[in-house]
Design a protein around this nucleic acid. Structure first.
Length: 584
DNA sequence: CTGGGATAG
DNA sequence: ATTTCTATCCCAG
């Protein structure tokens, strides 16, 4: 499935056949098994570590090992307190409240690698760096500091990209891996005197499919446009590579390429609105998408397994039970939080079977942070045999959703019993909707998911025990469809005031320059070799109109359910107790 | 809200 | 085109 850097140095790559790996590297160590809980745990730990540095909470995960962090506010603040006469003796405050928290740094240079190589950014006749150059330098020093802390405190090295938006930071982060950081330096807009933009220069060499947001389907359409025929997929090598190499420059410089033609080429049923303009922006290194807020709970939890042969009902029931058990355990790990109202003197209720708890998640003193409302069952059927005996492979999935029954939130019942009950009372019916025939099907994959999380009040509780953040988000949800907003184009945000040059679409390709700094971090590495941090490499040197609050006094009384450890409005307690009573 | 697609690691 | 187990966002209906 995957391999470490050592194996890659020996010529192996991810998603390689075991047979090929053994041939190329006979002493390869193959680890069988698919328990990724350790990776999940490490991912959470490192993500929480990074999140703790954020002021604005914009810390977005991408998979298990990558994070974007918008540090615009931290850079704003530190630009204000920076002494421009003594750039060499700067102090970066990592806390607004405590002026002693932070690190000393040299704002006269970039930390780590600049792109292009050797660039110092844009500096005037007196050697004074322009604002954006200084801002990116600050970003680079913050990145170096955080990487140092990560290595010292957690023992992981890392790779970082520092730039003015998400797409540029992610791509520039690839330049010096592992254990390096790269900052995309100004000028980032084409200059009146003809100095070209480093953003364009940087984007131009990338193969079209390497640009985040341009996946396999879009890349093939763009290659077709440039080549005049569909690009041939290069077999044998890594997935996604083509024999013909079409670069960003090839597409951008194509005479017929503009937002309108791209829209005609790329738009289709199901494709996002305005895709032509979005892709055109990406080709110019322009990306006005926000770094998402860190969320307390995931929006979905899913478990899946693939099968060589799964074609009988008893086997399906067995697999569904196994998956349901995993899913319920995952729900307890990811959706349970500390219960502030928990009384530790009260012994935990024994489970109904008197069996010692062996689940991974401890449930005492915990409560549900969110209640998923929906259960989804997905399968991937194998195609029936063709008349000639061959089988056309498909990877299409079919799914069916149903309400998630409330008994799964019981913290007194053991997971095994709950899993069996879930299969009996929900999943069997859902399975029949997908596969009404008694036999004749053969599944290559089964997936179980819980979605539509209804978040319960979190940490930021108000006096009446409600989450003010959730209330505002709800207000936003309600108002959104009624509010008339003026669409804002990223181009309208140009801070330069430079007029575009007629006939040069490039000049409209302004990166997001409104002072934002995005850091993209990837590739946490286990301890081992010295990194560019530790080896001393000099390079790395209120009002009354709150309609939603109406009637609160009437409904305000809240009871506490000892079974599922939730706060329940008093008027609903009788009905709520029925949820926990055995089914009749 | 559902079911499916595209994209991503 | 292949092989896995996740996850997110978006769209039409």
């Amino acid at each position: 499935m995957t391999c470490n850097y050592e194996a890659r140095r020996r010529g192996l790559h991810k998603l390689q056949l075991i047979r090929d790996a053994k041939r190329i590297c006979p002493d390869v160590i193959i680890e069988l098994g698919e328990d990724i809980s350790q990776f999940r745990d490490a991912s959470k730990e490192l993500y929480n570590f990074i999140k703790a540095y954020s002021w604005n909470g914009q810390v977005e995960r991408l998979g298990f090992d990558e994070v974007w962090m918008d540090v615009t506010d931290m850079v704003d603040y530190n630009m204000d307190i920076l002494n421009r006469n003594h750039l060499e003796h700067g102090f970066f405050q990592t806390s607004k409240d405590d002026p002693t928290e932070g690190f000393e740094f040299d704002a006269s240079s970039v930390a780590g690698h600049p792109y292009p190589k050797g660039s110092v950014g844009v500096v005037d006749e007196d050697g004074m760096p322009e604002n954006l150059t200084l801002r990116l330098r600050l970003g680079s020093h913050l990145a170096l500091y955080m990487r140092h802390q990560l290595e010292q405190q957690k023992g992981y090295t890392s790779t970082v990209g520092i730039a003015t938006n998400k797409v540029l930071s992610k791509l520039v982060g690839n330049m010096n891996k592992p254990k390096g950081q790269t900052t995309l330096m100004p000028p980032l807009t084409p200059d009146a005197i003809g100095v070209s933009s480093n953003a364009l220069l940087f984007m131009d060499d990338h193969e079209i499919g390497k640009v985040p947001g341009i996946g396999f389907k879009l890349a093939q359409k763009l290659r077709q446009l440039i080549l005049g025929h569909s690009a041939t997929i290069d077999e044998g090598l890594v997935w996604g590579t083509t024999k013909e190499c079409v670069t960003v420059a090839d597409v951008r410089n194509h005479p017929e390429v503009n937002p309108e033609t791209l829209e005609k080429l790329l738009a289709g049923p199901g494709s996002p609105h305005g895709i032509g303009f979005k892709i055109w922006c990406l080709l110019h290194g322009v990306d006005d998408s926000e770094v998402n807020q860190a969320r307390p709970v995931p929006s979905q939890i899913s478990i899946e397994d693939s099968y060589i042969r799964l074609d009988t009902m008893p086997e399906v029931l067995k697999e569904l039970t196994t998956l349901a058990r995993s899913l319920l355990n995952r729900m307890r790990i990811d959706l349970l939080g500390e219960d502030d109202d928990h009384d530790p003197s009260e012994p935990e209720a024994p489970d109904s079977h008197g069996v010692a708890r062996q689940d991974r998640a401890s449930t005492d003193g915990k409560k549900w942070l969110a209640h998923p409302k929906t259960l989804r069952l997905t399968t991937r059927p194998r195609n029936p045999l063709n008349p000639d005996g061959s089988r056309t492979r498909t990877f299409k999935r079919i799914s069916h959703s149903a309400p998630l029954p409330n008994f799964v939130f019981s913290l007194t019942e053991n997971v095994d019993a709950l899993a069996e009950k879930l299969v009996r009372e929900s999943l069997v019916t859902m399975f029949r909707k997908l596969h009404p025939e008694k036999a004749g099907w053969n599944l290559s994959l089964v997936n179980l998911a819980v979605t539509n999380m209804a978040e319960t009040a979190g940490d930021s509780k108000t006096a009446n025990g409600r989450d003010i953040g959730t209330m505002f988000r709800r207000q936003e949800d309600v108002l959104r469809d009624f509010r008339v907003t003026e669409p804002e184009s990223p181009l309208s945000r140009s801070p330069t005031g430079l007029p575009g040059i007629a006939g040069m679409p490039d000049t409209h390709g302004l990166p997001k320059l409104n002072g934002e700094t995005t850091v993209h971090s990837s590739d946490a590495h286990v301890p081992g070799e010295p990194s560019d941090i530790s080896n001393g490499d000099p390079l790395e040197s209120e009002d009354d109109d709150m309609a939603w609050d109406e009637g609160d006094d009437a409904l305000g009384a809240v009871d506490y359910c000892p079974t599922c450890k939730s706060h329940i409005p008093s008027f609903a307690m009788i009905a709520h107790r029925r949820f926990h009573s055995p089914a009749v």
